[in-house]
C-alpha cells in the first residue's frame, strides 16, 4: 500500500470522479429521495407539486403496517437460523473433506444465488395439490393449506434462497484457518468433538456471524418468496406492502416511509457485516 503523492494524487482522485458521480446520481440521490418522498402526501411528489405532510406517513407505518415490519424481521431471522444449522456442516465438509457428489454439491450451491424467481415458483408448485408433497398431505391427513400460505413455507423458501451465502461465508472463513491447528488439538488428545468446539468453532465465528447477517439482510429484500409462498397473511412483509402501495395504490408517501424503515434495517445489517469481515480493512 502506498499513499499517492503529487501528480499521482491528482490522477487517483480524477480517475474516481466518473464512478463517484454515477453512484451519487443513481444510488445516493435516489435513496435520499426516498426520505424526502416519505414526507409527502400520496403521489404528490411525482405528480405536480409535492405536498409535505410531516411525519404522518410514519405514524401510519407504525400503526397500520407494524405487522408487516414484525413479519419482515421474524421470517428472515428464522430463515437465517435454519441456514446456520443446515449450512455450517456443509461448509465444513466442503472445505475439509472430500465428500460424495463434491462437485455437484458445490455447483448446485450457486443456483439459488439468482433464483428467487425459480425457488418461489418451484416451491409453490411443489406445495400445491398435485405437487411433490401430495403423499405427505395424504400421510398426515392434512390440507395443503396447512403448509402452503403459512410462515413455514416462507421460511423454507427464504432459507433455500440464502443457504449458499451462509456456506460461502463460512467456508471462505474456514479456508483461512490452518488445518494443522485442528490436527494439533487431536494429537494433544482432544476428541474430535472437543477439537471442533474449542478450536474450529471459535475461529469460524466471524464467518458464521457474517453469514447469518448476510442471510438476514438478503431476505429482508425478498419479495416473490413471501408473496407466492406466504399469500396474503403469512407473506405480509414490508417489500410486498411497498410494491402494493406504489404500483397498485400509488401511495408513494407511505411506501417511502416503509422503505426508509427497510433501508435503515438493511444499512444496520450491512454495517455489522462489514465490521465482522475485513472488507473495510
Amino acid at each position: 500500500m502506498q499513499r499517492p503523492s503529487g501528480i499521482g494524487r491528482a490522477v487517483v482522485y480524477l480517475a474516481l470522479i466518473p464512478t463517484v458521480l454515477y453512484i451519487t446520481l443513481f444510488w445516493i440521490i435516489p435513496i435520499l429521495h426516498v426520505f424526502l418522498v416519505s414526507l409527502t402526501y400520496r403521489n404528490s411528489f411525482i405528480m405536480g407539486a409535492p405536498r409535505f405532510v410531516g411525519l404522518s406517513n410514519y405514524a401510519k407505518v407504525f400503526s397500520e403496517y407494524i405487522k408487516s415490519i414484525e413479519n419482515s424481521i421474524k421470517l428472515p431471522l428464522a430463515a437465517a437460523t435454519v441456514d446456520l444449522i443446515l449450512g455450517y456442516p456443509l461448509a465444513y465438509l466442503l472445505t475439509r473433506r472430500k465428500v460424495l457428489f463434491h462437485n455437484v454439491l458445490r455447483a448446485s450451491l450457486v443456483f439459488p444465488y439468482f433464483g428467487d424467481l425459480y425457488i418461489s415458483y418451484g416451491l409453490w408448485n411443489m406445495f400445491l395439490p398435485g405437487g411433490l408433497f401430495d403423499f405427505v398431505y395424504r400421510l398426515l391427513d392434512i390440507s395443503y393449506r396447512q403448509i402452503l400460505y403459512t410462515p413455514y413455507a416462507v421460511v423454507a423458501g427464504f432459507s433455500i434462497f440464502t443457504l449458499p451465502f451462509m456456506v460461502l461465508y463460512i467456508s471462505s472463513n474456514l479456508q483461512e484457518i490452518d488445518p494443522s491447528l485442528e490436527e494439533a488439538a487431536l494429537t494433544l488428545g482432544a476428541t474430535p468433538i472437543r477439537a471442533f468446539f474449542r478450536v474450529v468453532l471459535p475461529l469460524t465465528l466471524p464467518g458464521a456471524v457474517a453469514g447469518f447477517l448476510a442471510c438476514f439482510g438478503w431476505n429482508l429484500g425478498g419479495y416473490l418468496i413471501p408473496l407466492l409462498l406466504g399469500g396474503i397473511r403469512a407473506g405480509d412483509v414490508m417489500t410486498v406492502k411497498i410494491v402494493h402501495l406504489t404500483l397498485q395504490i400509488h401511495d408513494y408517501g407511505v411506501a417511502a416511509a416503509l422503505s426508509v424503515v427497510l433501508i435503515s434495517m438493511t444499512i444496520l445489517t450491512t454495517y455489522m457485516t462489514f465490521k465482522v469481515t475485513k472488507v473495510l480493512r
Binding site: 443513481f26 444510488w27 426516498v34 429482508l220 422503505s259 427497510l262 433501508i263 457485516t273
Partner: peptide, 11 residues
Amino acid sequence: FTPDVVAGVGL
C-alpha cells in the same frame, strides 16, 4: 445490499 424495492422506489 440495498433491497431492489427501495432502489426501485428511489429511482
